[in-house]
């Protein structure tokens, strides 16, 4: 170690890397372990000392996952639900964010404050009446019961308003107005394309949240063909098969699509979360 002047702005100490590497290891290891158990049969999964390299049983267990529950159907269901919610949030929150950031109307400030305050309302505990409403709509055991309530959210509106307020100059909107564009045309052809990156990240966050959602689908969905992947995992855990590998294999298969997605868009998600955060 060089011992020059102890200016901490200068060099990064080794222990900083050690702590960060430990955190990274802690983040990744459970997923690695999930894969290990998902590739080993029960006899070795419970062997001690445990295996630390993947076994050769991945396709056997994966096949068992697909034959125990309608897993392909579950993935399709999850894609439909999470995809609709992602797109819905990106468009509807951008639209509302545009109105709050750039349009003048009576009650705007009070309504925006209301939107922000709804973020603090713990609506999950109202799940019994929520179920009664879904039931009276005839939506029990349907995918729209999962999609429709998630199409717009307060966080997204807050987020898009911040982005639109800072990324879109009034001059551009005025120019479009002088050219005779209607308000809708200004939003859809001028404003939305300019904030598409932010809307994309918002849609991604909505997609991930919806893909991983558990309680509400668990309450609303009844038949295995309607299950989302998360509920399918629970069904695997419940099945009489005591094979640990089976539930792990299902968990791994349910996580894999998001991991692949994350490899491509993780960088933008990190930037998005950090830009969306408020900065003191």
């Amino acid at each position: 170690m060089r011992t020059t002047r102890p200016r901490s702005g200068d060099r990064v100490r080794w222990w900083v890397y050690a702590l960060l590497a430990l955190a990274a290891f802690a983040c990744l290891f459970p997923l690695y372990w999930m894969f290990i158990v998902a590739t080993t049969d029960t006899a070795t999964a419970i062997k001690l000392p445990p295996e630390i390299v993947p076994g050769g049983n991945f396709f056997h267990l994966a096949g068992l996952v697909f034959s125990t529950v309608p897993f392909v159907r579950s993935i399709v269901n999850s894609l439909i639900v999470a995809g609709s919610i992602g797109v819905g949030q990106a468009v509807l929150c951008a639209l509302a964010g545009f109105a709050f950031a750039k349009m003048r109307f009576r009650g705007r400030n009070a309504l925006f404050l209301f939107v922000v305050l709804t973020m603090t309302v713990p609506t999950q505990l109202a799940i019994v009446p929520q179920y009664m409403i879904i039931s009276s709509l005839g939506w029990v055991d349907t995918l729209q019961a999962l999609i429709v309530p998630g199409l717009a959210n307060a966080f997204g509106i807050f987020w898009m308003r911040q982005h639109i307020a800072s990324a879109i100059s009034d001059e551009i909107l005025q120019a479009a107005r002088i050219d005779g564009a209607s308000t809708w045309q200004i939003f859809w052809r001028v404003a939305f394309p300019l904030v598409r990156p932010a809307a994309f990240v918002l849609g991604l966050l909505g997609f991930v949240t919806a893909w991983n959602d558990f309680l509400w689908p668990f309450v609303v969905l009844k038949s295995p063909e309607m299950y989302t992947v998360q509920i399918a995992i629970k069904a695997l855990q419940n099945s009489f098969n005591i094979d640990l590998g089976l539930a792990m294999s299902g968990s791994f298969l349910a996580t894999l699509p998001l991991l692949v997605l994350f490899v491509f868009v993780g960088r933008r998600m990190v930037a998005g979360i950090m830009n969306g955060a408020f900065k003191g």
Binding site: P30, S251, A254, L259, L261, M269
Partner: peptide, 14 residues
Amino acid sequence: LVPYITSVAATAIV
């Protein structure tokens, strides 16, 4: 951010 994109259900099982 990897744990954040992992579902609670998968997390609980592992």
